[in-house]
Design a protein around this nucleic acid. Structure first.
Lengths: 341, 341
DNA sequence: TCCGCGTACGCAAAGCATTGCGGAGAAGAA
DNA sequence: TTCTTCTCCGCAATGCTTTGCGTACGCGGA
C-alpha cells in the first residue's frame, strides 16, 4: 500500500530534463554542466531521493543481500555471531536475509532454496547438527555462489571457514581440570560427523595424553544435544564402576542440563564433580556455581565470517580457514583445589 | 560473481517461442495450447526456473520483505520473537530484513532509513529503550508504510500492536509473593516513557492494593537496564531503614544481576528474599535457585505480530492492539512458605 | 471463394537506473 | 559564410517479468 517511491523520472520531469542527465548529474559526470549538476543534486537531496535497489539489482545482477543460515536463532552463540555479521555487512551496504535450519538438514536445504529464490549474493552458514551430506552446498559452489561456513564447517578445501580453536580449547579444559586435581574427565560430545565434534575429540585425546591421563572409552559419549539424552548420558556416567570426577560438554545447553542433573542427585559441584562448558558469558556467570567455560569470540566470528565473505566475492578461489583463539575462564565449577585449601 | 540466473528469455529462446508465451504457459493461461504449456512447464522444472524477484518487485512495486527492528539480537526474548515472525512470514513467501537498534534511538532511526532504502514492504518494530519521540514512525505512517509494534509500543491509535498483559502479569507477581508470605515487595522498572514500564507500574500499584499491601515509593525504582545500575539499585534497597523482603524486575538481565548481588552479600534466596523475574524458560530453569518468573509467549508474539502485519497491509486503517496472556511459573526463588514448612 | 470468428501466439510498454553513442547547438577558424 | 570542434544533453538498450492488445492462421458457413 506504500506510495510509489521517488524515481529518477520524477526528478527529470520536474526539471524538464532527461532521466539520463539526472543520473549523470547525481554522480558528477563531467558531461553535465556544473549549474545543472548542482540543481539536480539539490532537488534530489530535498526530495530524499534514493536509487531503487530493485532496478540496480536488475542491472548489476546483485541484490546486496547475504543469506545467513543458522541452526536456530535463540541460542546466544548464533545470535551473537549474526550480530557480528550484520555489523560488518551493514557497513558495506549489505543486508542480511535470515533463515533457520532448526537443526534439520531438510530445512537447511529448504532455506538454501528460499534464499536462492530471493537472489542473495551469497550465503554464510553454520551447518545443522543433522547435516552429514553436502550436495546442496556443492551445488552452490558449482554455481559460483559465494559461501562461507562458521563453527560447524565442511568442504574446507573449497569454502572459507571461521572456526574456534576447538582442539586447543579442549586441551585447555583437560589440563585445567587436571591441575585442579580431577583425574577422570568425561566428555559429552556432539554428533560424530560434525567438525566441532571431531576436533574436540582430537583435543580430548591429545589433552589427556599431554596431561598424562589415560583415555577411557566409557568417558567419551556422543550426544544428539537433546535434554533427555544429556540426562541419560550423565546418569550412565554415574553408574559406571569407575565413574568420572569431572565432565565437560559440547555446548551450554548440554552442560547446564548435566549440572542440573548432578545437583538433583545431590552431587556437589565442584567438590564432588568438576564441570566445564563451552558457553557464553551470560549463562556462565549467572549459573550456580558459576561455570568454568571456554568462551568463543562470537562477535568476532561473525565479523570475520563477513570479512571472508567479501573476500570470497572478489576471489572465487579463496578458501582460507580462519581459526580464532578461545579463552578458558576459570570460575567456581572447577575449583577443586581452592575449595580444599 | 555468481552466474547469471535463468530467465524467461532463456527458456523462450530454447523453445523458439516468445517470452510472453513462456510467462503465460507457466501460469496456465488458456490462450496457450495444452501441449506447449506442458513443454514449457517441463523445461522450466528441469532447469529449476525461478522468477526473478527483482523484476517482480519492480513491476509490482513490492519486495516481499519485512523489516524487523529489535533493540538487540542476543536477548532471548527478541530472537525468539523474530523466530516467530520469520516462521509466519516464510509461509507467506516473505523474507525478513533484520536490523538492531542497540537500544539507541539514533540507531533506530538509522535502521529505519536503511530498511527504507532496501524498499521493505513494511516494518515490525520493538522500540529501543531510549525512544521517547516518535517522529520517525509518524513519517512511516504518513507514507502509508505498514508498521506493527510489539512489546514496547507507541502510537497505538494508528499502529497495530502485540503486547503481553503487563498489568495483569505484575498483579500476578505481587499476589504470588504476598501469598508466599513476602510483605515488602520492591520493583525495578525500566525507563518511564516505555509502555512496558508504565503498564507494569500500574499493575504494581493495583496489585499492591488488591493484596492489601501499601505502596512505598522507596521500593519502586526505574532502571536504565544496565548492570551497574541494577547493582546500585539493589544495594540502595538493602540500606533502606525498612528494606524490602522481595523483589522483581523488568527483564532477566536485571533480575539475574540482582540475584547475583544478593548472593554476593550472603543473602539467601528465597529464605531471606523472594525474587521473581520476567525471563525466559532457559535462563530461569538453569539459575540457582530456579527463578520464579513470568513467561512471555515469545514465539506467539512473533507469529501474531506477523499476522497483524499482513492485516495492516490489506487494511491501512487497521490498528488493533492484541494482548497476549502470560503465565507465572512458580519456582524456588519465591517459595518462602514451602521452605518454612 | 470470401468473410468472420476463434485459437494460439507475439509485440511492446511499464517499472527503474545505467551508459555507450549519437546529435544539437554554439563558438572559433578559415 | 561555412566547416570544425567542443560542450552538454537525450535516445535507446539492458536486466526481467507481466499483461493488454494486436495478428496470423485455420476452419466453418454463406
Amino acid at each position: 500500500m506504500a506510495k510509489r517511491h521517488l524515481s529518477l523520472k520524477d526528478l527529470a520531469s520536474e526539471l524538464n530534463i532527461s532521466i539520463s542527465t539526472v543520473s549523470r548529474a547525481l554522480k558528477n559526470h563531467p558531461d553535465i554542466s556544473p549549474e545543472l549538476t548542482r540543481k539536480v543534486q539539490e532537488l534530489a537531496a530535498a526530495r530524499h531521493y534514493v536509487p531503487n535497489p530493485l532496478a540496480m539489482g536488475l542491472l548489476k545482477q546483485e541484490t546486496k543481500m547475504i543469506g545467513v543460515i543458522v541452526p536456530d536463532l535463540v541460542t546466544h552463540f548464533y545470535s551473537s555471531v549474526i550480530s557480528g555479521i550484520e555489523e560488518y555487512a551493514k557497513n558495506r551496504g549489505y543486508f542480511i536475509l535470515l533463515a533457520s535450519s532448526y537443526e534439520s538438514m531438510e530445512k537447511e536445504i529448504e532455506s538454501i532454496s528460499n534464499l536462492l529464490k530471493a537472489r542473495v549474493d551469497g550465503m554464510i552458514v553454520c551447518l545443522s547438527k543433522e547435516t552429514s551430506r553436502f550436495d546442496h552446498f556443492l551445488q552452490l559452489i558449482e554455481n559460483e555462489i559465494p559461501l562461507v561456513f562458521f563453527d560447524r564447517v565442511c568442504l574446507t578445501e573449497l569454502v572459507p571457514c571461521v572456526v574456534a580453536d576447538n582442539r586447543n580449547s579442549v586441551e585447555k579444559i583437560v589440563s585445567h581440570l587436571k591441575e585442579e586435581g580431577f583425574k577422570r574427565i568425561a566428555f559429552i560430545s556432539g554428533p560424530a560427523y560434525l567438525s566441532i565434534s571431531q576436533e574436540r575429540i582430537e583435543g580430548y585425546l591429545s589433552g589427556l595424553k599431554k596431561s598424562g591421563l589415560e583415555f577411557d572409552p566409557d568417558l567419551l559419549q556422543s550426544c544428539s544435544m537433546l535434554t533427555e539424552e544429556a540426562i541419560r548420558i550423565t546418569d550412565s556416567f554415574l553408574v559406571l564402576p569407575n565413574p568420572p570426577d569431572a565432565i565437560f560438554a559440547i555446548n551450554d545447553m548440554v552442560i547446564f542440563t548435566v549440572m542440573k542433573e548432578l545437583k538433583r542427585r545431590g552431587i556437589k559441584i565442584p567438590e564432588d564433580f568438576g564441570v566445564v562448558g563451552f558457553a557464553d558469558e551470560f549463562h556462565a556467570t549467572f549459573s550456580s556455581p558459576e561455570l568454568t567455560t571456554i568462551t568463543h569470540p562470537t562477535w568476532e566470528i561473525g565479523l570475520k565470517a563477513a570479512e571472508l565473505f567479501f573476500k570470497k566475492m572478489e576471489d572465487p578461489t579463496f578458501a582460507e580457514t580462519v581459526v580464532l583463539k578461545t579463552t578458558l575462564v576459570a570460575r567456581e565449577s572447577s575449583k577443586k583445589l581452592k575449595i580444599k585449601n
